[in-house]
């Protein structure tokens, strides 16, 4: 048992050097070849880093497109969701509150509120909303900014990532890129 344990200690040390130091170091160096991706697909406005295209951001105010509800309010140093059962009273209450708030803030919106607007994401950092939810928000954003709806429709289309082959994943509008594009618009 002692002989085996000594062998175990030595093998663990060797494997730690190989798998715990050399392997991540090599991958980190190789990843420099695609530094923008390895660093988190950062988004800049006027030369300043304002976030990551992979992370949603809190965006209060009617002039911005709203991301999905987030339990952590997009803090970035915590991630996770509500863990509520869809059948629970707490979840029913949360949905009802979101629905009432959205209706109040979007008097001109057309059609029912899309499902992804009423439910919190798993990560709390989801950058995507459905095309339906982006479209649903256009009247509010257009009114708040005084821009033509067609301008926003074009921006939404530009910021839509389509599912690979139409079914691997889902179509989504990247709200972080969309709001960054709005920030770059000439002030109306």
């Amino acid at each position: 048992m002692l002989r085996q344990s000594l062998a175990a200690v030595r093998l663990l040390l060797l494997m730690t050097v190989l798998l715990g130091v050399a392997y991540p170091a090599v991958i980190t160096l190789v990843a420099r070849l695609d530094a923008p991706a390895a660093d988190g697909s950062l988004v800049t406005v006027d030369g300043h880093v304002v976030g990551s295209a992979l992370l949603g951001q809190a965006a209060a105010g009617p002039e911005w497109f709203q991301p999905r509800p987030s339990v952590s309010d997009y803090a970035g140093d915590t991630s996770g969701g509500s863990n509520l059962s869809p059948n629970s009273q707490a979840q029913a209450d949360a949905r009802a509150k979101r629905e009432a708030d959205l209706k109040a803030a979007n008097p001109d919106a057309v059609g029912p509120i899309p499902e992804d607007a009423l439910t919190a994401s798993a990560s709390g950092l989801e950058p995507y909303i459905s095309v339906a939810y982006a479209t649903w928000q256009i009247p509010r954003v257009a009114a708040a900014r005084g821009v033509d709806r067609s301008v926003l429709e074009r921006l939404v289309a530009d910021c839509t990532d389509h599912a690979l082959l139409g079914y691997i994943g889902q179509d989504g509008v990247n709200v972080t890129r969309l709001n960054a594009a709005l920030a770059g618009l000439p002030k109306g």
């Binding site: 869809p86 979840q91 439910t119 798993a122 989801e126 459905s130 994943g169 889902q170």
Partner: peptide, 14 residues
């Protein structure tokens, strides 16, 4: 199922 606790880029099926 609902979209609670699911990500838009994956959806319910994935």
């Amino acid at each position: 199922g609902t979209m609670e606790g699911k990500e838009q880029r994956f959806g319910v099926a994935w």
